[in-house]
Design a protein around this nucleic acid. Sequence first.
DNA 1: TATTGTTATACTCTATAACTATA
DNA 2: TATAGTTATAGAGTATAACAATA
Lengths: 135, 135
Amino acid sequence: MLETFVGYNARRAWLVVTQVFAERMAVYGLKQADFSVLSLLAHNPGATSRQLCSTLDILPPNLVNLIAAMDSRGLIERRPHPHDGRAIGLHLTPAGEALIRDAERTVTQLEAEASARLTARERETLIRLLQKIYR
Amino acid sequence: MLETFVGYNARRAWLVVTQVFAERMAVYGLKQADFSVLSLLAHNPGATSRQLCSTLDILPPNLVNLIAAMDSRGLIERRPHPHDGRAIGLHLTPAGEALIRDAERTVTQLEAEASARLTARERETLIRLLQKIYR
DNA sequence: TATTGTTATACTCTATAACTATA
DNA sequence: TATAGTTATAGAGTATAACAATA
């Protein structure tokens, strides 16, 4: 019965992937949210906390320490926003760029392993159907 | 980039479904784990805590209060296991059966709403592909 | 008045160690 | 010795309210 529900199956699949993800990202000292933030900044330099929050569905208070920690680690930099004095533009440092490049490569690899029982086409279909749910 | 990963998309889809789920199940006083336990017991009467844990990937200590609460509510009954003096067989009471019957109907309905942008066939495909990941 | 970033805090979910009773 | 159920507790993740600075 449970297995006929999208919600149940999505959670079970996510649990499997997320476990492998956590193990492989521990090498880089990154958790899921860290990876998501760095990856977004790599492809959207200068994004604000608020933009990250709405894109990732994270609440602002829960992003603060996360950003502060990666700032301390020298992975990201906060620069004044060009047009909005309230906001802070977030940028990757060279170290942050190097780290996320390696991490993204690792995730691409583990994704391939996690979906090894799917053909390339099935994997595309899966992602497309999942996006139809949440977009 | 993030959107090319199964893990990311599975989580986002699950977040959407789970939110609607939580709202609709609040009427019954059930959380996700409660629903899963009751539903499993409805279709597997006499199951033990240990069996529920391994099926749902819940750790034994985290199931204790959950079971106790539903026992207090008169939804489930603990009976001595017929063959194993250590174990306890879990059964739904008539009240528990009535509740999970209604709740399952509601979940079936909300699942249909959540996957309204998918055809019936796409929904089947989605579930099949998700199961290929975690099974 | 509304929004950005922030602090403090609380609540839920998940994880670990250790105990008892039975196998 | 191994397993089922339990207790206590710690940690991670997520949520709300309220504040200063800027729009």
